[in-house]
Design a protein around this nucleic acid. Structure first.
Lengths: 356, 356
DNA sequence: ATCGCAGGTGACACCGGTGTCAAGAAATGC
DNA sequence: GCATTTCTTGACACCGGTGTCACCTGCGAT
């Protein structure tokens, strides 16, 4: 490993200060402005001057100070991720995708949890953006649903990308997951297996994603001419416990459903628990489907049939879109809404309905 | 909401630039240095001067630029979290704890995944620290085990905290989870239930945490005079699949164990799957215990008996320790190693051994 | 030979804050 | 009342980069 000025001699260490642009300039016999030109790949630098400076940079292991750079450029190379906590795995997937996109670009990611329900959220986010001098932010569902927040950010010239279950923004700042289609596909899968009495577990009522999934479910049922029974649509809260309760509610009916589709995996696992405790065989007597393809889904037996929405990929897309906006030579033409296609993941918690 | 210079008049918006220290100075009729004094709570400012300036700051909604501040102070108010991906939930818990500690302090958190196995990891981390001008980093297990990395950071005067399953650093830069004790407690729990033939599923061999847990298991067995059978100690890889395989290996023996203790929850879930597929009743015929108390553990039936190690709290502690080191008036006396006590979480996957 | 014009370079101010130090104002000691 | 100390304040350089603009080359065209 090249150490540059960091001399490590056995146990004795002689550590010099980090080199600055002035050091580079002095050693290569040019002004610091010319060094700056080389750093920024400006044209109009004679090629042997350039290579001489590059050699010195190599030798010194020099890297420009992002703070100073940011101050001069008025950029921080920092992007923020604003989220409320619907699901730790969802966030960590998104995060991984964003980090993947950032890798090698010089951008760093700063995390910022927020409270979707707080009326001070907008102020808090604005304050956060200002305090950290963020170049832009990525908003996660459900916070991404808040049009007021988006307007406020735009007003303050803070670029943002919304990751959302539905197309919601006129200015192409959204990465859409198309939850409606995912739920539609899953419902068709269940119908294809012969199920007619299908229970649906909703998320909390303020949740756009849950709404979209219900719409997709509804649409599929309608298209196949299956009446929607109100008693089989059950309120949930996106938690395991609410899934357990929903399962109890559905499975203790006189005519229990032959399949239950929960609008997220965790609730589906709750339903599964209820079924197991009641001695109902899954998938033989009851098919269960979830949504998200979260890590939980494949850690149980029977493993969960669910919908994969490439959450990580959405994070990556969002970061790319954001960095595109931040690039000085941005190409507005590239700024289109991006939609990620949901994919059915069929495992062992769903099966053909038993012949009665 | 107070808008300061941001005048929002119906749909017409007059947006001025963000105020700088010079604006504040001009409006309050003092030099910017005096404003700086007020911002930094320096003594020796006449109290009416101070209040006058504070009024202007309020009025302008002024906040100092962290970039410029950082440049002058040589601080970034950024701390990094370096991790390899043993478990998304573990990381997100730690992260939440750190963010909780950072809240209101002005510090922000930057995420940095790294590859534990890469021989270039040290360089990469150093480069990351330098590029982002981090004030300090928190290292997660298993990366925290790398003494070379710690030495390298110390050499470069980068403060760090290691979150580790074992006390490993002489200079009080560690938050310890005491995995040995946790495993010891769990083993005693199983022994107390009458189990004698207890299987143990190891993590990957390079994993210090797994080693510690095995030591704790071994110690408890020895103290209770129960011989350790090599055939019941099974290699795993901290993955669900390796848990499934370990379960198969253990449960197809002539004399299968009456309990299996896996060194993490995910592997325990793998064992549970195997048991369920083989028709072995849990916990009636087989007790299963995990470690971590990750979110997965309570999403299955029977829910997993496991060890809670307050991961979030450890993150919080680590952040506090780090910020203490970064504080200019730091009190070295406070810098002691912190240890978090593991707690048994007894759920429904373990039960007294059946009378044969 | 002279002009023009482009490429290549550096002096200087600036980004928005801070440290240093010296000078004026106020408070204290005799 | 005067010397001395303490408090308050601002001018100035600096942190480590960048933009602007003027200057100096060398070259082809006139």
């Amino acid at each position: 490993m090249h150490k540059g000025l960091w001399n490590v001699l056995g146990t004795t260490e002689i550590v010099s200060k980090k080199p600055t642009i002035n050091d580079v300039a002095r050693l290569s016999g040019v002004s610091k402005k010319t060094v700056s030109r080389v750093i920024n790949d400006s044209p109009n630098v004679k090629s042997d001057t350039r290579s001489k400076i590059q050699a010195v940079i190599q030798q010194l292991d020099y890297a420009p100070d992002p703070q100073a750079r940011g101050l001069a450029f008025r950029r921080s190379y920092l992007i923020g991720l604003v989220y409320d906590n619907p699901n730790a795995l969802y966030i960590s997937d998104i995060q991984a995708g964003i980090l993947h996109a950032c890798y090698g670009t010089g951008y760093e990611l700063i995390m910022h949890p927020g409270d979707f329900c707080s009326h001070r959220l907008i102020d808090q986010v604005q304050h956060f953006v200002h305090r950290a001098r963020l170049d832009g932010v990525i908003l996660l569902s459900p916070i991404s649903q808040l049009d007021k927040l988006a307007h406020s950010l735009r007003r303050n010239h803070c670029p943002y990308i919304r990751i959302s279950p539905k197309k919601i923004d006129a200015v192409a700042n959204v990465v859409v997951s198309n939850d409606r289609k995912g739920a539609f596909l899953m419902t068709e899968h269940l119908i294809g297996l012969g199920h007619r009495e299908i229970g649906f577990v909703l998320g909390p009522s303020s949740n756009l994603s849950s709404e979209e999934k219900f719409e997709g479910f509804h649409e599929a049922m309608k298209q196949h001419g299956i009446p929607l029974r109100k008693r089989l649509v059950i309120e949930g809260a996106n938690t395991f416990e609410s899934g357990v309760a929903a399962g109890e509610q559905a499975l203790t009916r006189a005519v229990p459903p032959s399949a239950i589709f929960a609008s997220n995996d965790v609730m589906a696992l709750g339903v599964l628990k209820t079924a197991q405790m009641m001695g109902i065989a899954v998938p033989e007597s009851l098919s269960i489907a979830g949504y998200d393809d979260s890590a939980h889904a494949s850690l149980v037996w029977p493993d969960l049939t669910t919908v994969n929405q490439s959450v990580g990929f959405m994070g990556e897309l969002a970061a790319h879109k954001l960095m595109l906006q931040l690039a000085p030579d941005r190409d507005r033409a590239k700024l289109v809404d991006v939609s990620v296609e949901p994919k059915l993941v069929i495992r062992h918690s769903t099966a053909a309905v038993m012949h009665v």
